[in-house]
């Protein structure tokens, strides 16, 4: 289809909100599928359309439907990241003065999808219950209390599995990255996203 940039843009602008309206029910089902039981789907859906409208002001969105779903995914993950970040902040408050907290981040060694599959491989190597706990926590964003309720185990058992799972992941990744010759421990890197 041939069209100049302006008309394309106009179409997209009239697009994202109407696509949202059109997709809303499906999008909500999708969100319910990928987020923890306790999450507020209204909030996530609202945040999704707000971000989409914002982004639409800044650039052309050629595939509004795919874009909406991508944003929705990011919103769900951001909620989890926020918790993790506040924990990091908390830990950093204990920083000894001798340690600089601003070490440069290592360049991306693997792209986002590869990284995910690498982590997934680590998760797949976990013993069964540990794996269940870890998937609930890291894939579906369940809290420890929700996990223990779901699996009928105590919170302290959940904690033990989370700790063991993280330990295995870090061992797995260190080993894997050592083998792949980068020699550097796994470090966080900029995320791809919206």
């Amino acid at each position: 289809m041939v069209s100049d940039a302006n008309s394309q843009k106009r179409r997209a602008e009239s697009g994202i909100f109407s696509v949202f309206r059109e997709q809303e029910a499906a999008l909500r089902r999708f969100l319910r599928r990928i987020s923890p039981a306790s999450s507020d789907i209204d909030d996530i859906a609202q945040e999704t359309i707000l971000r989409a409208l914002q982004a639409e002001r800044e650039r052309d969105i050629l595939q509004p439907k795919a874009y909406l779903y991508m944003i929705a995914r990011n919103v769900v993950r951001d909620a989890m990241d926020k918790k993790s970040r506040s924990l990091i902040d908390y830990i950093e408050d204990f920083a000894p003065e001798s340690v600089s907290s601003n070490e440069p981040l290592v360049e991306d060694q693997v792209d986002g999808r590869q990284r995910m599959l690498l982590f997934w491989e680590a998760v797949a190597s976990l013993p069964q219950q540990c794996q269940q706990v870890f998937v609930l926590k890291k894939v579906y964003g369940y809290s420890h209390v929700e996990i223990s309720r779901q699996l009928g185990i105590s919170v302290s058992t959940t904690e033990k599995h989370v700790a063991a799972g993280l330990k295995r992941c870090v061992d797995f990744l260190d080993r894997r990255l050592a083998v792949s010759g980068t020699g550097e421990e796994f470090r966080r890197s900029a995320r791809t996203g919206d």
Partner: peptide
């Protein structure tokens, strides 16, 4: 101790990328 737990907390954040598995798993 500080450095290790900070490293792990960052790794734990990084592992959140696994939310991307929610769909394919389901």
């Amino acid at each position: 101790h500080y450095e290790e737990i900070r490293r792990l907390a960052e790794l734990s954040l990084e592992v959140n990328v696994l939310t991307g598995m929610a769909e394919p798993l389901k």
